[in-house]
């Protein structure tokens, strides 16, 4: 089963995030470009575009199952997350399956995550 829904404090509004450039920003102020630039300078990590293709009830109570197609290869990846878990959507910002719960638990303003949204994810860079 997925790990129980602890409260990752890095999603709490006001949490200080260090970019790979060394710059510090609050989590609610992050923009798409911050992730893109961080991946560029971090070495070994790359940003993938992960498109939400389905959102289902999880077999685990209190979780939702998100289905993505990831990266250029359009690989299918599914993950179970609590509905309040925020994802960063290109051009939109933080989004979750339950913006109300995200606001309640993290005070982080969120859009509703929907099928078709393109989220930022990371993977290991292919070192040839």
């Amino acid at each position: 089963p997925p790990s129980s829904s602890h409260l990752p404090s890095h999603f709490m509004k006001g949490a200080i995030i260090q970019l790979a450039t060394g710059e510090l920003k609050r989590v609610e102020d992050l923009q798409t470009q911050d992730f893109v630039r961080s991946a560029e300078v971090s070495g070994g990590l790359k940003i993938d575009s992960s498109t939400v293709v389905d959102i289902q009830e999880s077999q685990w109570p209190g979780f939702v199952m998100l289905h993505f197609v990831v990266g250029e290869q359009q690989s299918k990846v599914s993950i179970d997350v609590p509905p309040e878990h925020p994802f960063f959507v290109y051009g939109q910002g933080w989004s979750s399956c339950s913006p109300a719960r995200t606001a309640q638990l993290f005070s982080l303003p969120c859009h509703r995550l929907q099928v078709g949204d393109v989220c930022i994810s990371i993977s290991l860079q292919n070192m040839n």
Binding site: I17, Q18, F68
Partner: peptide, 25 residues
């Protein structure tokens, strides 16, 4: 006066999921 207090700093990559596609052939 503002008393100094320790503030946690989180790395940017802790905020985004690591979605590793299965290895292509």
């Amino acid at each position: 006066n503002v008393e100094p207090r320790s503030v946690a700093v989180f790395p940017w990559h802790s905020l985004v999921p690591f979605l590793a596609p299965s290895q292509p052939d």
